[in-house]
Amino acid sequence: MKSVGIVGNGPANLLPDLLLFKGKIDIWIGADRGAYTLTEKDIPVEYAVGDFDSITDNEKLLMEQNTKYMEEYPSEKDETDIEIALNKAFELEPENIYLFGVTGGRIDHELINIQLLYLIRNKGINGYVVDKSNSIEMAFPGTHTILKNEAYPYISFIPFTKVVEGINLKGFYYPLENANVSWGSTRCISNKLLSKKGTFSFEKGILLLVKSCDTIQA
Rank of each mutant, 00 (worst) to 15 (best):
N126T: 14
G101Y: 00
L86K: 06
L119S: 13
L99I: 13
I120A: 03
L99M: 15
L86R: 02
I107Q: 12
L111C: 09
D108C: 15
N87L: 08
G105F: 09
I114V: 15
T103K: 03
I120M: 06
N87Y: 08
E91D: 14
N122V: 03
T103W: 03
N113F: 07
L99N: 02
A89H: 00
N96E: 10
N96R: 12
A85E: 01
L116C: 08
N113V: 10
A85R: 03
G104D: 06
P94Y: 08
E93G: 07
N122L: 11
L117A: 00
G105A: 15
R106E: 06
R121D: 05
A85K: 02
L116E: 00
R121K: 15
Y118F: 12
D108H: 10
K88W: 06
G101N: 00
E110L: 14
G101K: 00
T103F: 06
E110P: 08
F100Y: 07
N113G: 11
F100C: 03
G101P: 02
R106G: 07
E91F: 09
D108P: 13
G105Q: 06
E93T: 15
L92D: 03
H109N: 10
E91V: 07
Y98G: 01
F90C: 05
R121G: 08
N126Y: 11
H109W: 04
L99V: 08
K123H: 10
G104R: 10
E91N: 10
Y118W: 10
R121A: 13
A89I: 02
G124W: 08
L99Y: 03
I120F: 04
G124S: 12
I114W: 04
L92I: 13
Q115Y: 08
N87R: 15
Y98A: 01
